[in-house]
């Protein structure tokens, strides 16, 4: 079945095959939403699962995401023309003083792959900028990344900025990054800690369920 072909090609990171599969599926009359949900998103859920279980590794996740994006590009105009809803919305960035973007980008890719709308604030994001983005975009989830022991204090400052702005109750804050731990997340008053991109999607889903 064509959706299975799309799914397995996406998991394997075969960009050209995904593109061909998506085009063929559209020609056969499948709906863009069906292709997205049961082909591309279904594939990325498997990818996230395999990644979490150490069956596949970062480069394989990257190449699968690239294949998925190639498929999404074809159906995106059709989807946007329709009324499709996102799962939920997240605003994500790396804290002030920290320029690491790999982990953050993996999380964004996986969330988008799972049907989320994601606003990427980039790196070196000041607490006020996180707050302003939440005021503007009204997400359910804020993802905060820090990869250095030295920028972890900026995570605390970010959580505090939400408290000061009176917005803490409006969002769930998930923190992650190599030096971050569950205990640290609790200590600074975040809602959750995600250890990798796959579990970030699962945890974010749990928080908005």
């Amino acid at each position: 079945m064509i959706l299975d072909d799309i799914k397995s090609a996406t998991i394997a990171g075969q960009k050209a095959q995904v593109e061909n599969g998506v085009k063929r599926a559209l020609e056969e009359g499948l709906s863009p939403g069906d292709i997205l949900d049961n082909g591309l998103i279904a594939a990325m859920l498997v990818v996230g699962e395999k990644f979490r279980n150490n069956e596949i590794f970062v480069p394989e996740m990257l190449i699968a995401a690239r294949a998925m994006q190639a498929g999404v590009r074809i159906i995106e105009p059709l989807i946007l023309a329709g009324e499709r809803k996102y799962v939920a919305k997240a605003v994500i960035g790396t804290v002030k003083g920290d320029l690491h973007d790999i982990g953050k980008n993996l999380v964004i890719m996986m969330l988008r792959g799972a049907g989320w709308e994601v606003v990427d604030l980039g790196v070196d994001v000041a607490p006020e900028k996180f707050v302003a983005a939440v005021q503007e975009h009204r997400p359910q989830i804020v993802g905060v990344s820090a990869l250095l022991t030295t920028t972890m204090p900026a995570m605390k400052a970010t959580v505090e900025a939400f408290v000061r702005a009176g917005l803490r109750e409006n969002v769930k804050i998930i923190v992650g990054g190599a030096p971050v731990s569950r205990e640290f997340a609790t200590e600074i008053g975040a809602d959750a800690y995600a250890g990798d991109a796959g579990s970030a999607v699962e945890i974010a889903g749990g928080l908005v369920a």
Binding site: L148, T149, M152, K156, P179
Partner: peptide, 10 residues
């Protein structure tokens, strides 16, 4: 040399 880092202790 011995590196000493306690950056996690806010």
């Amino acid at each position: 040399y011995i590196d000493v880092n306690c950056g996690t202790l806010l």
